[in-house]
Design a protein around this nucleic acid. Structure first.
Lengths: 213, 213
DNA sequence: AGTTTAACGTTAAACATTTGACAGACTTTA
DNA sequence: TAAAGTCTGTCAAATGTTTAACGTTAAACT
């Protein structure tokens, strides 16, 4: 046996968190027609050191070129492959309140490969209504839709109180990961990763930064 | 001279990031009528170790009690004070697209002290329209509103391409911090902190977690 | 062709964070 | 009033992350 590909063996979480930023920037530069980018210039635009950038990019299966830097197109492709966003990912959204509807209507995620294939809500008042081109479905149809459409990711935008119960239903329906937009902390089996995007927490973190001076 | 209050001297960022979670949980428990909470039980519900919790809470100006733990009400108050969210914070929102409108309509932030006092957009097609009880204002009125209402925080939900320019305008208008909901990386003077809430980055991070196995 | 030099990739040191361990404090119980 | 037991606060070790430094590679130029 052979440690042939160090690259694919557990990338540090701090690095994984930065990878989407590199990807966004590589994508942007490539679209602007820029062909090469150096670790220093990436660092400057993302507020990091060039050393961190080089260290981070050493985890992906892609080489820079002396005196030029990294090819933007190559970097974009390699990062997308590493993150697993080089193929579409099907998602469903649970909770068709203001935030849920905003996300369902936002086309950017779809363009980046995150395809929403269903919008669910537990409230009979909302079920059956249209959100963009979606018709809001009842929670009872969750399991069937996840199975049929091979849904990988569930996006939660329900009220705090309902969050854990909905998360449990999503896990039972066999989604593979959760994006949590609620303020609740979700408990899941370790095979079902959760990433939190808490706007309220971010506001509070910002309050500290603004006021502790 | 005297190092009297170790508590108020630079709390590690990792700790500041967790404080909003402790606050949310303390608030929830207090509302449920729970009076005491131990570091172990906080740790279990938030997915941490009890050691981390005790270490973290030692940074706030509040003491636990042997054999009982922390008073939920006391903890809530102390955390709010430490984070600076014990008084209202005025915010404005720039970008009245789907996401911006959803946030403006979301009442939860207001209940937590983040008072939105204005919604702005650069598009003449949107200016003057209503979003909830707000009338969308033109960017030209930004400086005056920030000064008049003593706005501390600007929330950005504009398209990627416009983000830096809008951030610059917000900084000139003298907001003290930015919540960035765009995919752009914002460059600001160090006196103006930025906290990012990138849904797309979170989705990508989740893609890695789901697919790298 | 050879030299220069910009940039990468990697190492190791510095720094930050997390964790386990335990003394001491306080409540409870008898 | 004393003993038992539980939970905090803190220390120090372990782990994880960031950074500077430097050898190496290959493009560009003479």
């Amino acid at each position: 046996m052979n440690t042939e590909d160090i690259t694919s063996l557990k990338i540090p979480v701090a690095v994984v968190r930065r990878m989407p930023k590199y990807l966004t920037q590589a994508q942007y530069l490539r679209q602007e027609g820029v062909q090469w980018v150096s670790s220093l210039s990436l660092a400057e635009t993302l507020g990091l050191t060039s050393s961190t950038v080089r260290q981070d990019l050493s985890h992906i299966d892609f080489q820079g070129v002396s005196k030029r830097g990294y090819s933007t197109a190559g970097l974009e492709a390699a990062l997308a492959r590493t993150l697993g966003v080089d193929r579409d990912i099907t998602c469903i959204l649970v909770g068709a309140g203001n935030l849920g509807r905003a996300l369902a209507l936002h086309e950017g995620f779809g363009r980046q490969g995150f395809k929403i294939v269903g919008v669910f809500d537990s409230s009979p008042a909302v079920v059956g209504k249209k959100v963009g081109h979606f018709i809001v479905r009842p929670m009872s149809s969750l399991v069937a839709v996840v199975a049929e459409k091979k849904v990988e990711i569930g996006i939660l935008s329900v009220p705090h109180e309902a969050a854990q119960a909905v998360a449990d239903q999503l896990i039972l329906s066999r989604v593979r990961g959760l994006l949590n937009l609620t303020t609740a902390h979700l408990r899941t089996p370790s095979a079902v990763p959760v990433v939190d995007t808490r706007v309220l927490s971010s506001l509070r973190e910002l309050a500290y930064a603004v006021r502790s001076r």
